[in-house]
Computed example of a mutant assay.
Amino acid sequence: MTITLRSVQCRNTEDVTGADEFYVRGGVSVPGLPPRAVLTKPFEINDNQKLFFSGALQDPDQAVLFEGNLSDAASIEIGLNFYDADFNLEDWDSRYQSLLAAVGGGIGAALGMVVAGPVGAAAGAMVGATGPALAKAFSTIDKDDLLGTVEQTVKVSDLTEGRHEDTWTFSNNRPSIKIPPVDEPPLVKPKKGSWWSDWDYTVSYVIDVGPGR
């Protein structure tokens, strides 16, 4: 099974003067397996533009959220933050590995606090852990603008063999999305919009399920 970020569609940027420098950070957790840190390098995207991660990223592997074989009893927790980068992009090339390690360390420590937590707790912990972890590794990281967050639990038993494609949509009025397991509707935490920015994004992802899961 693989879970991969596929595309990002921007209807309106957060930056009122031009393109956003879009990137993703967070983690993916499966009980019994080491967590996977997620950190994509920023790329420019503007109003009414759609880009595929496979083409926008120099290393498409950064868009892979999970890859491996799982039993039907397993569940996958995804906790992601979507950002507009406000610092020098040249720093990403020289410091990417240290930043990725900081994300991994942050989510690992956070998950250690919720080993016996309820379903969805791991996703929430990972969403909250990346900011402090990167702030320690990169003093200017806290200047980035948060566009949205996703906390999602995927139950393997709910998936049939083949490709499944879905989307997350977030904006200044709807920045946070929770997707519980089974067929419960998403739980949205509304946020008052900003008077100076009205961003609006949709990120698509694919889940490919093989015969051996």
Rank of each mutant, 00 (worst) to 15 (best):
A63P: 05
F87T: 15
I45D: 01
D59Q: 13
V103H: 09
Y201F: 06
E90I: 10
Y96W: 06
Y96K: 08
G79L: 07
M1R: 03
K50S: 10
V203K: 08
L57W: 08
F138A: 12
E151F: 00
F66S: 08
G112N: 12
D208M: 06
T153W: 06
T169V: 09
T140E: 11
G79P: 10
T169H: 13
V28C: 01
V119F: 04
T149G: 04
P180Y: 04
P186Y: 02
G128F: 01
Y23C: 09
D208H: 03
E44K: 12
R25M: 07
I3T: 14
W168S: 11
R6W: 00
S7V: 09
V64W: 02
T2H: 11
S98Q: 12
Q49C: 14
P211F: 03
D15G: 01
D142Y: 01
D200S: 13
I78S: 08
G128A: 13
T202E: 15
T167C: 06
A110K: 00
G68Y: 13
L159G: 13
G212A: 10
V64Y: 00
D61P: 00
G117W: 07
T167P: 07
L70E: 05
I107G: 05
D61V: 05
L65W: 01
Y96C: 11
I45N: 03
F52S: 12
N69I: 13
A37Q: 05
